[in-house]
Design a binder for these strands. Sequence first.
DNA 1: AGAAAGCGGAATGATGATCTCCACTTAGCT
DNA 2: AGCTAAGTGGAGATCATCATTCCGCTTTCT
Lengths: 215, 215
Amino acid sequence: MRTKEAPKRPLRRDAEENRRRLLEAARELFAAAGFEVTMDEIAARAGVGVGTAYRRFASKEELLGALFEERVNELYAVVERALLIEDPWEAIAAFLRESVELQACDRGLKELLLSSPRSREFVTEARARIKPGVDELVQRAAAAGELRPGTEATDLVMVQIMLGAVTDLVDESTPDLLHRFLPLLLEGLRGGAPLPARALTVDEFDLAMERGHRR
Amino acid sequence: MRTKEAPKRPLRRDAEENRRRLLEAARELFAAAGFEVTMDEIAARAGVGVGTAYRRFASKEELLGALFEERVNELYAVVERALLIEDPWEAIAAFLRESVELQACDRGLKELLLSSPRSREFVTEARARIKPGVDELVQRAAAAGELRPGTEATDLVMVQIMLGAVTDLVDESTPDLLHRFLPLLLEGLRGGAPLPARALTVDEFDLAMERGHRR
DNA sequence: AGAAAGCGGAATGATGATCTCCACTTAGCT
DNA sequence: AGCTAAGTGGAGATCATCATTCCGCTTTCT
């Protein structure tokens, strides 16, 4: 978690403060603009020079790395929380609602989960960590007959992607689009005749993620 | 439409041929990669040098401009065709199905309609041209009670955006995701209780488009 | 006060794009 | 055939955008 395993000497007070400000600035900008934040922007927002940013963090990757972890932990907590819900359908609804709300305010998280060739291992690892819980949510609901026949875990991710696209578009000014279309999609997931085309398999899904969506 | 209003002299045969090949190459690459195609790529694909590309077209913008028009015409044709369908609900379903299929194979079209700060006026104009028809489709269906109460024209666009995000992800290998989620969304649009949050107004929509979704 | 730690931000270097230039080639006329 | 204006290729001028480095000056801490 910390940059140094065993800090020989504590940072000077101003340095420690700058480190904190940099992380805070990065958090805000990462949420607002995703991976594309520049070090210059982060430094400016933190009110320090770029040089200082590089004295505190070895590279842009290291600085953002800390944030990735935070974000993934939040999402993981959402899954865990959903798994505690008794009713299988409510559990799925809660998972989608909360995870999508999380994404809606955070472009960085969206990119972290959906885009790919960024920090390869990190993303793969994060996805592996989330996956089992989501699988279980789907298993349970399917067993209870609360899902439209043929619904699979990858479908939930597609719902996240679809809503992500919508929130991407409107962001701050009108965050309620999420609560307009999530219910609509949930209804669709819950029941009805089987859908005409099959779901993405996990392999196909991973492959699609691998490629990322640009080009 | 043509580059020159009154071509003093016709192009030499080889030049005319190169012009044709450039447009064809641009069409293919624009569909595959969107706005980000480079002139080098287009020229290479057409089998000519960049210099030639710039002799035939004043700028990248001019070259792609011709394609914009083609694409928008196709979409306009879809609206027109839908308006001829008797049953109001079928008309809406057909419009969405066809327009989304069009988008699915064409990143350029997707970007043209959804992204924004590209060629400002051109996009605005294109949208203005499509809008009345879509409005009428919605009016009719609503009047016939075939739409979930509260559904508006902007909702149809949101459906396009959501499905665009999905097809963006998988593209060629699995084009059937579109036919998995479109029916689901159509069902949701067709009936049920009013949705909890309100739709985007046209102004909000335009504003969102104005901004584009990045940053 | 002195030294080590830290600081700002211009400069550097990599990359990647559009568009220009010009020595050569070719179509098309006579 | 030969002439010439139109056309061509593609190297590179030019411009942006970033991550990252460097170094003369400032601040903390003892």
